[in-house]
Amino acid sequence: MSSRELDDYRSGQPAQLADVLERVLDKGIVIAGDIQINLLDIELLTVKIRLLIASSSRRQRACRRRSSRSLPIDRAHRHAPP
């Protein structure tokens, strides 16, 4: 297996935001009862969050094409081709 294919696994770098989002927002145990936030609302909001992240990624790329200025969300896209 080429090193590139296992890069992500072994580099120990922060995971891509998309992979974190699809887990932290959509998965993990949901608890009913004495909690502060109604998770049903959160689930509806997930769609909105996805759109938000997607649009900020697009903005990010547009930004990067125009200049070399680096913004925080860049690290989520370190594998993006130049």
Binding site: L25, D34, I35, Q36, L39
Partner: peptide, 8 residues
């Protein structure tokens, strides 16, 4: 793991 924003 718990889901995001599980706050007591």
């Amino acid at each position: 793991p718990c889901r995001f924003c599980t706050v007591y």
